[in-house]
Nucleic acid binder design. Structure first.
Lengths: 251, 251
DNA sequence: GCAAAAGTGTTGTAGCTACACCCATGG
DNA sequence: CCATGGGTGTAGCTACAACACTTTTGC
């Protein structure tokens, strides 16, 4: 008797999928959560399909809950990818009869899919990456080590980054990507990585502090060479306000 | 013999639709192209379904070509609307057997649809509004005269406006909304309408001119009371550059 | 004590706001 | 000649960039 898939394909909407670009920040590097496909060894973004009774946002949350173990993830849709050629031959289609997938199911997978792109910001240390049925590895890859991806996923990633860059300029992003306590140089490095350029240490500090979205703590980071940097944390009230109203200012 | 619909529903993807918020500017007012549904007399956004072999962008262009007579319209997708309740009972579903629509077709219409929102900027005077099969009127309605709309179309409109506002701040929008020749006060009124606030006449002029995206002509508007305002037109090269690089600056 | 990184201050300038004034036209 | 609206100029302020200097710590 075959191992049976718990996949019931009929509960999903046809033609519609979603892909998530999950960003994390660790060791002063921006990372993205990727899966390696069993069949082709290609790397891919975590994604899935929408059920009959859920919104795209709910579906993205559901998918990411399984992939990361996290609930209530910071999520934003940023673009719909609908080029009819984007998955002319879908390399992710599982082998027939594997995982209990039938001929009919394989046909279903080979349909043309329009995909809604989401980006997510998560705290690196809280994530427990788990591969899905079609992949053998799920792990964080540094942005500068990512090469080509499955299908049009590289294009999706690039668009997510572009969007993140635009958002960063007038919304405080760090809250979701950093641990509760962090140092000013860490926050700066995050900004520099996303923006793709270096910033002046002193001007950065003054600018961030002027927004009143973070508060200095009476602690310093322990066990580092040279002068110990102070720890900060986000100020929830002002942070929420800044999220709604935007920041303004040049970067 | 019944009048036969030219609609072949099987050529369309299931579950996916698109809605367009078409903006035009006329008599110093921002207007939106709306349809009045035959069945319910409700106003609705022009929209449609995606064919098997086209991208969302192509589909939106196709829909708008029929609705306005225009080709190569400036179009941007801005959000996906996927609340499962957004069309619990679809009021736009045509009466069975009307327009040659069969029982099966009616079922098809009553599916749940996820809709991709597009906004379009067009030159008012070039548009020749045409109703579709399900509507009896297609016409421009001033933004401040629009009340509630069919389904969640009001929400879609509001989101489009919000997006337009954000885009306006760092991209030159006017080109697609104004005729070839226009005056400074007209351009200003357009900005004021989109931003929803008044701007200083003199500062506006200096700021716009500083971008070098428009050129003054050796003509003035004829047949107006008081001092005749100069005519301007967009400068294609610098305009394209500004589109790519953004503008920057506060509004 | 020297290198490396954190913390604080200053100064010049571009760009914005908020004005005042002049010009052209119709009644 | 006056009301209305277009066109141009200027003063003050803010926010940013580009700097120099001091402090703390590991080796």
């Amino acid at each position: 008797m075959k191992n049976k898939s718990n996949l019931n394909i009929n509960q999903f909407l046809k033609h519609i999928s979603l892909d998530c670009v999950v960003f994390g920040f660790h060791e002063n590097q921006l990372k993205v959560l990727l899966l390696r496909m069993k069949k082709t060894q290609e790397w891919a973004l975590p994604g899935g399909f929408v059920q009959e009774d859920e919104s795209m946002e709910l579906a993205a949350n559901r998918v990411l809950k399984v992939r990361t173990g996290l609930d209530h993830i910071f999520l934003n849709q940023f673009h719909v990818f609908s080029d009819p050629e984007r998955s002319n031959i879908n390399p992710a289609v599982p082998d027939v009869l594997e995982f209990g997938i039938t001929f009919n199911d394989a046909d279903w997978f080979n349909q043309r899919f329009i995909s809604v792109g989401f980006y997510a910001l998560v705290e690196f240390s809280l994530v427990q990456p788990k591969p899905d049925l079609l992949s053998d590895i799920c792990e964080w890859i540094s942005l500068d080590e990512i090469g080509s991806l499955m299908m049009d996923h590289r294009q999706i990633l690039d668009k997510a980054l572009e969007t993140l860059r635009l958002q960063l300029v007038f919304q405080p992003i760090g809250y979701n990507l950093l641990p509760e306590k962090f140092t000013m140089p860490e926050l700066q490095k995050l900004y520099e990585t996303i923006l793709g350029k270096e910033l002046d240490r002193r001007n950065f500090q003054r600018k961030i502090l002027a927004y009143n979205i973070i508060s200095k703590l009476d602690e310093v980071r322990q066990g580092v060479p040279h002068k110990a940097p102070s720890l900060y944390r986000f100020n929830p009230e002002n942070y929420q306000k800044a999220l709604n109203e935007g920041l303004g200012g040049k970067w």
